[in-house]
Design a protein around this nucleic acid. Structure first.
Lengths: 233, 233
DNA sequence: GTCTATAACCGGATAGAC
DNA sequence: GTCTATCCGGTTATAGAC
């Protein structure tokens, strides 16, 4: 009754297996960390063969890209209500950053590897690379929303670059967090509070007409940074 | 005739073998890149067994730490004459940064891996980790010299943190460079020129008495960043 | 033509003899 | 200090099953 269109079948079976493998992977990664989680263990836990696991995920690193995506979705969902109700820029940024860390917290143990691969230009995981363009776009889009719907007075030229700048900033915070071994990542939260405060101040400062020359120069520089991504192969 | 002091012999033989392995490694790494250079190939090229290579270098990554050290020495030597004669802050920084990139240039191909491992907190190569403390110290010391012997007027509190800040900045530039595939790293050099210009401007700005509150806040934040290193295990 | 499985390869790392 | 033999896990080749 449901299989008249033979050529267009959506192969939901495959999707299911794929999800099964991903779930197993994330669970084991969270429990044991990256090195301790072998592809063989993931396959076994999912009840499939090793070769089958590779059929769905070209490499162990590709599993991490899926992880990126999943945590981003969680972060997005977590920030939605706050961004809905709150319009103050500082408060919005503070909330978004705190929620980013709390979303990632369960995976702190293996987050290092995440960044490790992310910094390698040859890795498909590198956030500047072609492969992860969609993930990065999504991530930047969040900051676009953050900036767009706030009533803070910000010069247009700065406003245009701000989402990307905030994305870079958030990458920096994550890098710090990865190295942060304090209880409950307390230091990272402290750093977020301080940096958000400072950023807010700096944006006010940069909005001062007297700062126009410096601002111009800085923004030109940022556009230079952005271009790098497009130059990637 | 040379083996009277049996217990205190300095084992120069071992040092020689170690140097031989390192030389082979660096040569092959430069020629083929990281992935293509197997430990087996390094051992063979050095004329020793695989096991012996591991006797001197605990892992492939440890070879890279030696690489860090070597290029740092080169950079140090290259910057010495300029720092000797030039006293203008902007000119000094510009020279140091350009020379950093030109020193690394031959290894551009495998530099990605360098950063890849560097970002992982579990890696002995991570520049914030205990293992690489000496290398990092040396690296920061270069910027201390850069700041100390310049006649630019900089508030003392800022001057104290500036070497570390410049070190962080230089790490950022290296990260950019790793992803830069333009001919002769032209984009990186351009970025250096722009950022040095901007940094110089910002330091002047920050030295303005009116900026004191923002400066205070920013410096407190930097000290927070520095503390992270000490907290590493 | 989409899934799944088995067997093998390759290279980093280790054990233990000499 | 040096070697050989081996382990282990990511990855690939390839063949059979739905």
């Amino acid at each position: 009754m449901d299989s008249i269109a033979t050529t267009q079948t959506k192969t939901p079976k495959g999707e299911q297996t794929k999800a099964l493998i991903l779930d197993s992977a994330l669970q084991l990664l969270q429990e044991r960390g990256y090195e301790q989680t072998t592809m063989r263990a993931i396959a076994q836990h999912a009840g499939v063969s090793l070769g089958n696991a590779y059929h769905y995920f070209n490499s162990k690193e590709h599993l991490i890209q899926a992880f990126y995506h999943r945590t981003h979705e969680e972060h997005l969902a977590a920030t939605a209500p706050v961004l809905e109700r709150e319009s103050n820029f500082k408060a919005r940024l503070l909330a978004v950053m705190r929620l980013k860390i709390s979303t990632l917290e369960p995976y702190h143990e293996f987050a290092g590897v995440l960044f490790k691969t992310a910094a390698d230009p040859h890795s498909p995981l590198n956030p500047f690379a072609h492969d992860s363009a969609p993930v990065r776009r999504d991530s930047i889009r969040l900051f676009e929303g953050l900036v767009r719907d706030t009533k803070a007075r910000i010069p247009d030229e700065l406003r245009a670059e701000l989402p990307y700048l905030l994305w870079l900033y958030h990458m920096g915070i994550i890098l710090f967090w990865i190295h942060d071994s304090s209880a409950k990542s307390a230091r990272t939260y402290r750093l977020i509070e301080q940096t958000v405060e400072l950023l807010d101040k700096l944006i006010s400062l940069a909005s001062n007409p007297l700062m126009r020359p410096v601002r111009k120069r800085a923004l030109k520089l940022v556009s230079e940074l952005r271009d790098l991504e497009l130059a990637e192969t």
